[in-house]
Amino acid sequence: MRIHPRYTQRGAVVILGGATLLTLVILIFIIVFILEKGLPVLGWNFLTSNPEDMGRSGGIFPTLIGTIILPLIAIIIATPLGVFTSVYLSEYTKETRATKIIRFGTDCLAGIPSIIFGLFGYIFFVITLGMGWSLLAGGLTLAVMILPTIIRTSEEAIRAVPKSYREVSFSLGASSWQTVKKVILPNALPGIVTGVMLSIGRSIGETAAVIFTAGSSLRIPTSLLDSARTMSVHFYILAREGISAENAYGTAAALIIAVLLVNLSAYWLMNRFISKRS
């Protein structure tokens, strides 16, 4: 039996539209739920004062510092490493067995659960290299964790630059590096930035890898070798140990807003960059 295209078309619209709607509803529900519980607690005072009594009362100031510093260290280390690697893989090597193995390896790395990275960071950075629970150990662990994502998204962005741009650049007497610098990277930048932003979001929200490597000290860190607690870890501890559901939601709301701010500023930056070029 053949169904008339008019009906299959209608069915498709319902299913596709329904899926989109459901996704949106779930997203909005989560955000509204957290904000509703968290916003009453969240205020300037909450953000800028020190926690008291293990976080039962007081604010989250030290964890705010931790949440800024840790992803910052990770991004500063992982972005150049990741972007250079992806440029090398896509522009300086021809497709061979070796590059395929490297690409497969990064895919595997990207899929490893973050707690494994935490364990690795604990054994390698914290114990073997003697960094102790510290911002440095945590930042390096996060860097290792997000590196595969940055490599893969950058590589995709670089591959999306039309081959004809490369041909033109080479035909005008450019070396590989000049082509990368003047044509490839500027055109791949929006894609690269997206990958970096995703990674920042992931590191802000990361708990398992951080708790093993940066520890959970509630003191304000004064050096890279000090232990620190991020908002995600703080939230985890407050909720897991039943210290304060109120403050846990306040922290969660702060987290969500932080991630939102990162994404919004990324879009703003990117749009500015694109409109400047065209």
């Binding site: 039309p162 004809s164 741009y165 041909e167 033109v168 650049s169 080479f170 035909s171 005008l172 007497g173 450019a174 003047k182 044509v183 500027p186 055109n187 070029r277 065209s278």
Partner: peptide, 26 residues
């Protein structure tokens, strides 16, 4: 060699930059 022997391709491909920047690229 490519500086001495220039090439125009079948499909016109301006690089995504200004007219001026395209000309001074080489």
């Amino acid at each position: 060699l490519r500086k001495k022997v220039g090439m125009v391709f079948a499909m016109p491909v301006p690089l995504p930059m200004s007219i001026y920047e395209n000309v001074v690229y080489g």
